[in-house]
Design a protein around this nucleic acid. Structure first.
Length: 258
DNA sequence: CTGGGGAGGGGGCCC
DNA sequence: CGGGCCCCCTCCCCA
């Protein structure tokens, strides 16, 4: 995912929080803070038996539960498997977020403006209002035809706002073309990220091994390899993996203990 | 088969 | 409203 944001920050004055990753004077001491793998939330809610007490890892066994709606009053288990919130930055905080997320996931009263449809909370009426423009809500997800007013003419997807639809349509029209190879992208920053594959620019370096990456997400995944305890754990054999995909693969190819 | 890097994508939020 | 940024996910490929 060559994300243009990975590039952008080098061209603008804006500085995402994670930029500290590559600017840490003392990378090793910084890592525990940025990637507190041993400090993952401990799942005090005890929402799932598969949620390991250590809070260090995730069990593939909880996947089905994660796909199910999560009670807003029950803090959903953070982490990569928190699929129930993957589409919502407001609740996307996890051990991986390492403070990057500007939108705290906490159900605390600080965010007292709650969307009636999806129960997300916002700190201001404006934020809530903005969210509601695109919020399909749980009910709408159950019956999309009930709310969606903007339909993509290229595919069956539907959106609740013109802006969202326009954004989506770009994935069909791919207006951003790489002048080097001709590959087209839906967004300018996607293109910029792609261009780095040509230039070889790798702005993100690992504080542990100084390996550089062009993509921050890839760096994040790489950092997992430095962790003694991986985040994703097989419920059957307790093996841990650095990526959910590896865990999935492990499960699909037949866990010997399953 | 496993681990890990490279790369692309979509959606949401902020400005 | 649009651009930019950020998130997370996923696939592919290779060692």
């Amino acid at each position: 995912m060559p994300r243009s944001f990975l590039v952008k920050k080098y061209f603008t004055s804006k500085k995402p929080n994670y930029s500290e990753l590559e600017s840490q004077a003392d990378p090793f001491s910084a890592v525990p803070e940025r990637y507190p793998l041993a400090e993952l939330p401990t799942g005090e809610n005890g929402s799932s038996a598969a949620y390991y007490p250590t809070g260090l890892v995730w069990n593939v066994g909880i996947l089905p539960a994660l796909y199910a709606p999560v009670s807003p009053s029950t803090p959903s288990p953070p982490g990569p498997l928190d699929l129930s919130s993957q589409s919502s930055s407001s609740s996307s905080s996890s051990e991986e977020d390492e403070g990057r997320t500007s939108d705290p996931p906490s159900p605390e009263p600080a965010d007292c403006f709650q969307c009636a449809r999806c129960r997300k909370s916002y700190s201001s009426p404006a934020a809530l209002s903005r969210h509601q423009l695109t919020c399909a809500g749980a009910d709408a997800r159950a019956s999309p035809a009930g709310r969606s007013a903007f339909h993509c003419k290229h595919c069956p997807k539907e959106y609740n706002s013109l802006g969202a639809l326009k954004m989506h349509i770009r994935s069909h029209t791919l207006p951003c073309v790489c002048t080097t190879c001709g590959k087209a992208f839906s967004r300018p920053w996607l293109l910029r990220g792609h261009i780095r594959t040509h230039t070889g620019e790798r702005p993100f370096s690992c504080p542990h091994c100084n390996r550089a990456f062009a993509d921050r997400s890839n760096l994040r995944a790489h950092l997992q390899t430095h962790s003694e305890v991986k985040k994703y754990q097989c419920g059957a054999c307790s093996r841990t993996f650095s990526r959910m995909s590896l865990l999935h693969k492990h499960s699909l190819t037949g866990c010997s203990s399953s």
